[in-house]
């Protein structure tokens, strides 16, 4: 019972925090330079892990899919399935999970370290709102960077899928390219990017929330980084499911 109350209390605090972040974004003062710097840092840090994580997924889909599609003599259709699966589902979900692992945990660890060292309190003493200066740039950066990374991983995933389908699997190159674009619609691309923005927002808010909740000591910094990753992955899968059900209901 006490755990349930604690959980609800944390959830309420998270809601209040999210509202505070939202309100701080709408009103000045804003720190554009800090936001740009965060985006720059996130792109540099995330691009390699995100690429390395999503590229093998396309390869695995081709590797496992080719036998199944051959069963029906439809290996030319493999690329249609690969294209929609990567663009719509796997690239957004995995890119966001890796952004949570890389950017989310490092943002939480950074804010937690600042808290332990008393730098957050120092900011507040100087009249700078820590949420505006430290959290909001991170949230905006995650929101913008995740879809950008997902565009790159779309290409990487399809390229690695091509590699395992055409040279290794023996599918005809022309047929692969022709069926690749046949099934992807503009709606699929927007659904993928929209999901990424949603997940990125979640990563930024949860990382800031857990980072600021660090009390004292080095161990709690590690715990904040860890909790951020675990909680955002849960959130990503949950949201993904709800969004998929809604889209299926709308017939998109």
């Amino acid at each position: 019972m006490k755990r349930l109350i604690d959980f609800l209390e944390t959830l309420g605090a998270l809601g209040a925090f999210a509202w505070q972040v939202f309100w701080s974004t709408l009103t000045s003062p804003r720190y554009f330079k800090e936001t740009l710097r965060m985006m720059d840092v996130l792109v540099r840090r995330c691009i390699i892990p995100v690429g390395l994580a999503v590229a093998p997924v396309g390869a695995v889909i081709s590797l496992q899919g080719i036998d199944v599609f051959k069963l029906f003599g439809a290996e030319r259709m493999l690329s249609s399935f690969l294209g929609t699966a990567i663009v719509r589902e796997y690239s957004p979900a995995l890119a966001s999970v890796m952004v949570a692992a890389q950017a989310g945990s490092s943002i939480a660890a950074r804010i937690g370290t600042m808290k332990v060292r008393g730098q957050i309190d120092a900011l507040a003493v100087m009249g700078v709102d820590p949420v505006r200066y430290v959290v909001v740039p991170g949230v905006i950066a995650c929101l913008v960077v995740t879809p950008l990374l997902s565009v790159i991983t779309n290409f990487l995933g399809i390229a690695s899928g091509w590699f395992f389908a055409v040279p290794i699997g023996g599918v005809d190159h022309g047929a692969f390219m022709e069926h690749l674009t046949a099934q992807i619609t503009a709606a699929d691309l927007w659904v993928g990017l929209g999901k990424c923005a949603l997940f990125g927002l979640g990563v930024g808010v949860i990382a800031g929330f857990l980072g600021l909740r660090v009390k004292h000591g080095a161990a709690s910094v590690g715990k904040a980084a860890n909790d951020t990753v675990v909680n955002t992955i849960i959130l990503i899968l949950l949201t993904d499911y709800v969004v998929s059900m809604m889209l299926l209901g709308m017939g998109l």
Binding site: M98, A101, S105, S106, A109, G217, V221
Partner: peptide
């Protein structure tokens, strides 16, 4: 110090997942 703990946790998660 505390920063080192945060960095090593982050590296462990990312390298492990990739």
């Amino acid at each position: 110090g505390a920063e080192g703990v945060g960095i090593s946790t982050n590296l462990a998660i990312v390298h492990g997942a990739v």
